[in-house]
Design a protein around this nucleic acid. Sequence first.
DNA 1: GCCTACGCCTAG
DNA 2: TAGGCGTAGGCC
Length: 803
Amino acid sequence: MFAEVIVDVAAYPIDRPFDYKIPELFEGFVEPGMRVKVPFGPRKVVGYVVDVKGESELAENKIKPLEELIDFDAILSPELLELSKWLAEDTLAYRIEALQVMLPAAMRAKYEKFIQVEQLDAITEPDFLTMLKGRDRVPLKYADSPILLKQLKAYVKSGAVQVDTLVKQQTAMKKVRMIHIVKAPILEELLNSLSKQAVKQRELVTWMIGHAGESIEAGKLLKDAGVSATVLKTLIDKGAAHEKKVEVYREPEVVQLRETAVPTRLTSYQQYAVDEVLHAFHKKQDTTFLLHGITGSGKTEVYLRTIEEVLSKGQEAIVLVPEISLTPQMTSRFKERFGDQVAVMHSALSAGEKYDEWRRIHRKEVKVVVGARSAIFAPFEKLGIIILDEEHESTYKQEDLPRYHARDVAIWRANYNGCPVVLGSATPALESYARASKGVYQLLELPKRAKEQALPTVNIVDMRAELQEGNRSMFSVSLAEAIRERLDRHEQTVLFLNKRGFSSFVLCRDCGTTIQCPNCDISLTYHRATENLKCHYCGHEERVPTICPECESEHIRFFGTGTQKAEEEIAKLFPEARVLRMDVDTTRQKGSHARLLQKFSEGQADILLGTQMIAKGLDFPNITLVGVLAADTTLHLADFRAAEKTFQLLTQVSGRAGRHDLAGEVFVQTYTPEHYAIELAKAQVYEPFYHMEMSSRKQFGYPPFFYIVNIQFSHEELMKVVDYAEKAARFLAEGLSPESVIIGPTASAISRVNNRYRYQCLIKYKKEPKLTETLQALIRFYRTDWIKDGLQLSVDKSPVVIY
DNA sequence: GCCTACGCCTAG
DNA sequence: TAGGCGTAGGCC
């Protein structure tokens, strides 16, 4: 028997299955979806079995046997193996990348090289012997000097030592020491035999008699019995107990937020949505639903009800949320409703915790997964429903290889399993709403808030007028007044700082110079904590200059507004207010995000000040005011989705106010109050915005009227990057149909990163049967030839941002 | 992607 | 001519 194996080598000529002989020992045991260790050329690598067959086309002597099984049952189902094939093709990635993206990072193999001593007596060099310290196997990295490397080379040649690769599995399994205490009679006998001086031992044995026959975790035992580890060790040696390492799951910290009541009745809109989705579920139809529900309309309740039914039929559910750590409330609702049938997968978990959650799914110990993008690959085999909450979020698209969109994978899996997909949002992506309008998706509307509360009143504040009045602060008079009122009434305020593209930078007030990164074509960002300037693209760091490098003026200082600055201003304006700041700086530590939210939910603060991360999911009854400090910042980005992003953000953040009994109010500060994205966000109406934006997209030929592919080129030399980009553009023009438009090559918005010049080509097409074929041919040129000349090329289908 | 064999080159 | 460096081609 032979196994077709995809090996863990990401290279163009390797991107296909390789045949290996299955040794008799493993015969009948190897199945598709298992990982194996195989010899590949002179080294050993991990591979994924994708097929098992009786015959191989290769000559017998060309086939090596596989060496070892890493798994004893398949870790990838036939569905996921099939999916990896489609994924690799669709995203133009290697098959191995597609396979690996489906598994938790802890399962990815690490390779370590070792020096293995074969003939100890042949080694005479004192340096080399010192390095070995009497061991016959040391990591290769110990040989870290030119002398040692030279000696190593000689010894390898003579056969005295060997260098081999060890495939290291990061066995992320957590084990605890369990102490099993023996039966009482044995203990009593032992007690009698102990000498009088063995006070602590007598103490522990006496304690053990009270717990005879029990198994207790070592740490707990020591604490409860009040003895030290040495005493226990001695007694284990004397036979009073046995120790065993037992595999356990880590328990991710679950922050309990104030409970949200379970509604007893659904609104008629919710009921209709539930009925429609369940109809598709029962009929095993892979319908994609677009659940368009305004903020507070109870989309989550629709998810919960449909999942309940799916579970009752013995099937499983995947729920995707944009970045789950941002919505602890969402997870607690799922945990509340489905208890320990829920696994949670989010980026704040450690690698080990992610692995544990993955195993719980794989072993069918849970039936629901709530997680971020990668949870779409949850190894379920009886999928009954897939839900994407906030489906418009750009985090569903993976930015590095394989560049998949979770929505597309969801639809693929739904199709494979014959189950419905629900895309939920208050502000659907234009693409999705357009598909719903065309009948590709089925539209479900929730136009009313669940408890019939009114939507908050949204006030637009023209900051230009404020400036004319002489108000130079970040807070308009009306917003400041509104905050003052909340403080007096002991209600809570959320202040949102739209920070993207808005980070602080250093500017000379005299000559207008900004400090640029020496490697990249972008301004450096000011970091107050370290008093440093940092480049977000290449990591370059330098001190803040005291005089302008251009004109030597001393009037050089940081400019722009960050959360820290906002916090300072709040402290000045409202010295008595208790403020919680939530941004990358305050949430870096694990779990701090949830802790901050918990504090806020318990009323330990009056004002929550934050960036993007507070825009969604917050659902606290005492929030009655939302202030958006600067609405425009996302509006002026060089991105065709700028208006859509702004509208979505404003709608989402406004939705945080007045979700319960108290009425909400929103203040949006802007320098462009007349822009339709801002005007329509004030009115909180999606459809008119959709139509406005669609006509603009149509005019400029952007999605959803055209599909887009972005091809990025980068090279250290400007001439070469232009050259290759032009070559590629010509090639694409020849290969694609004349209806498709090729724009460029043009210099990218950030034309240099890390000392590499960047160019790009955009392909716009409506229908392009030859797309995949042509792109693959282009990639073949790149991977076989251009790459050797130092070019870097990347293809991004339906990019979410174009840099 | 990594390894090696094989090419070419230089010092002696 | 041995040893050093660089690069093309194979990996089952």
